[in-house]
Design a protein around this nucleic acid. Structure first.
Lengths: 192, 192, 192, 192
DNA sequence: TATGAATGAGTATTCATTCAT
DNA sequence: CATGAATGAATACTCATTCAT
């Protein structure tokens, strides 16, 4: 597994991502991935341990990339409201830029075995959102009985929008719409 | 598929639903479904055409059941706000009562081939929500640039909550939380 | 296996013969035979032990019928030449009257296990032809180094003619043609 | 089906031929063929598309080989009588050298679907024999109302001899016997 | 006696993985 | 490092046979 050719590694991952996004895990044949990547079948095993490993590492990267992006794009010192806006925008941007990641995540449920990387990343992401809401609440601009639930909603909304939402809306429109909906949804009620 | 024993048919479907909820389609063996249902392997084929057929029919039933429930529980003549509340409550109730349906739907993306039943049902569901929002808007209690997006959100929220949400919240709490979030999210802004 | 309804038994055998003539043994489903015979699947087992048994008994009957016919149509006291003519005619007649028996026999080779009835009948038939040739030789009208071979030829000729021969010839023409060919083939050579 | 190892391909075909000669198509398991050929089960599929394909290709080769042999051993310019003798000899030789080909052909009837290769070859063979008889007739040494029938006989005779004939006769004896029978059978009658 | 729902043994075929080149 | 021929475990599906009715 000590690999030289990073170029080739990337080609393989991209090929795999493309194919896993189109078909279910078991419908994707390693042979096809190899062909798509333009390498021999055996070569795949120089870059990953197994098919499952390849798949999971894609997920890991996807979630890690998303979290990293959010962390880099959402300044620590911003207000809760600004952070939330940036989070929504980043989520939507990332989704539009990596459309088949959501197809990739499609088939993934709560994992049975030991928590894999992507699951930890998913939780980090939820955590980030949650804390932002809590901050917003502290600042008096948001109200939420259970930020953990809301964090979950947000991720589900993005996924659902990508998979089933109307194709007519631009990225900008979607971002604005979701932002408004979330912000309003969390706005403190005068008489609660 | 003309069959006698409806009891047995149900047992098979339930067994299949249970197993498909735990594993991916290709990881579920027909032999296991048969064992789980307490029937012989060959018997499955008296009640369905193929493994794929069995799986899809479960999805179809699940979505159809959900839609039917919403239609029966949401009175035609109610106000938009009441309808929306009932929709959210019904969705949450249905989700809690049929927890593995969401695991079932987990693996399903936008279908490639001819629109299957469940896909039509999903659209009916979205339609129902959309119209409710539109009605709410007409009644001046809601505001939404793109109800189609919001309808999509709602279904994603429920799914996400079931699959990844905190297990600490009761059905009642979840329902109330989601209701509040959605209602606030759609509330007409004073100065938009 | 103690059976009452001879009518039904016959219907089953005819249905089986029809189907076995069209497809190979393993391509014929017992269910189809039952349907073709207009009885239930289970009923078949009141009239035969197994599928294999049903098949073999058809063969047995076919060969037995053929032998019986030859024995009844070829008078013991006739001349060798007359007998041979009658044998050829009977074979051809039987073949034309029972065209799918030859399809039935198509798939049968030399049996591995204990000689079944049809194999004994096949040998009886060969014996009959052989003796006729021997008689003809004794009478000075035929000559044959190895009547056993010739007997085999004759049966192969009939089968081949039925399966692959030109469909343009009438039964009468075929009979005459084969008769002449065989007779000439066995005619004593002046200077051997 | 682009393959490297022709050795292996041959081993597989021979193994298959051996087994198909002993049992009916559906009684031969691919696993057995693989074992007999000394290769893995999956390897078979590198050399053929399917079991059926493997079987048919054997037949095709068998008939093609037979026809090719006849065409190479029967000189175009020979007399009808010589040709016929050579045909019979070649048929018998081929039969004795490839005894299980006749077992292979045993199960084959007139094909239902599109004429496969072997069926065309069978017809070529019949054609060759027919033309020879016609030539013999032109040359005044043969007489035959329907050479097409006779051609059919000839092939049936060989098959029948191989499958059911007495094992006591040598190849030489059989060839001579058949030759004489056919030649006499076709000899022009003085007073027809 | 007649039925056909239920059964489960049996098998072609696929495809992840290995390894000789 | 790279390859792809070889492998065999794994599984959906069929159908002869049984047996409760």
């Amino acid at each position: 597994m000590r690999v030289r050719d990073e170029q080739k590694h990337k080609r393989i991952c991209e090929a795999a991502a493309r194919l896993f996004a189109q078909k279910r895990f078991h419908e994707v044949r390693l042979e096809d991935i190899a062909a798509e990547a333009g390498v021999g079948k055996g070569t795949l095993y120089l870059y990953c341990q197994s098919k499952q490993d390849l798949f999971v590492s894609l997920l890991d990267e996807a979630f890690a990339g998303l979290v990293e992006r959010l962390q880099s794009e959402v300044p620590r010192e911003a207000s809760g409201r600004d952070k939330l806006r940036l989070i929504v925008r980043s989520l939507v941007d990332y989704a539009f830029e990596n459309p088949h990641l959501f197809e990739l995540m499609r088939t993934v449920g709560v994992p049975a075995g030991g928590r894999p990387v992507w699951e930890r990343k998913r939780q980090e992401l939820a955590q980030l959102i949650q804390e932002t809401i809590t901050q917003g609440a502290r600042e008096g601009v948001m109200q939420d009985d259970c930020p953990a639930l809301t964090a979950t909603y947000l991720m589900g909304m993005v996924r659902s929008m990508m998979l089933y939402g109307p194709r007519t809306q631009s990225r900008e429109q979607v971002a604005r719409h979701m932002m408004r909906f979330v912000e309003a949804g969390l706005s403190p009620r005068s008489q609660a």
